[in-house]
Write a protein that binds this DNA or RNA. Structure first.
Length: 107
DNA sequence: CTCGTGACGGTAT
DNA sequence: TATACCGCCACGA
């Protein structure tokens, strides 16, 4: 085991995101805190932005602290993320918000 | 090397 | 209670 080169900041973030169970969501700040970077939620968003579609990382399970998808309403990513989460069992309010009180992943 | 940007969060008002 | 502002760090040009 050994030869473990220090994992990139992004790698640690991806590791945490992949730990989110199906049917649950996590906030950027929560991911940052669990990954070991409290207060650096922006880096989490930037890391996910750099993710390829075939990465296998459930980026769609990550939402902002308001429980809403961070993409612009008319964007393709917004529609895709919302559609996937609904298929996972997540319920969206009329305003497009998720009740974190019920669906936020607890570490 | 420097500057600006950005899938956000927390605190102040 | 909601809204606005600033700060945080990594990456690209």
């Amino acid at each position: 085991m050994s030869s473990t080169a220090p994992e990139s900041t992004y790698a640690k973030i991806y590791r945490v995101v992949m730990k989110i169970p199906e049917g649950k969501v996590a906030t950027y700040g929560q991911i940052a805190r669990i990954a070991g970077f409290p207060g650096r939620a922006r880096q989490v968003g930037y890391a996910l932005h750099a993710l390829p579609e075939n990465s296998g990382v459930p980026w769609f399970r990550v939402v902002n602290s308001k429980g809403e998808v961070s993409f612009p309403l008319n964007s393709e990513g917004y529609t895709m993320q919302l559609g996937i989460l609904e298929a996972e069992g997540i319920i969206f309010s009329p305003g497009g918000k998720i009740d974190l009180k019920k669906f936020q992943w607890k570490k």
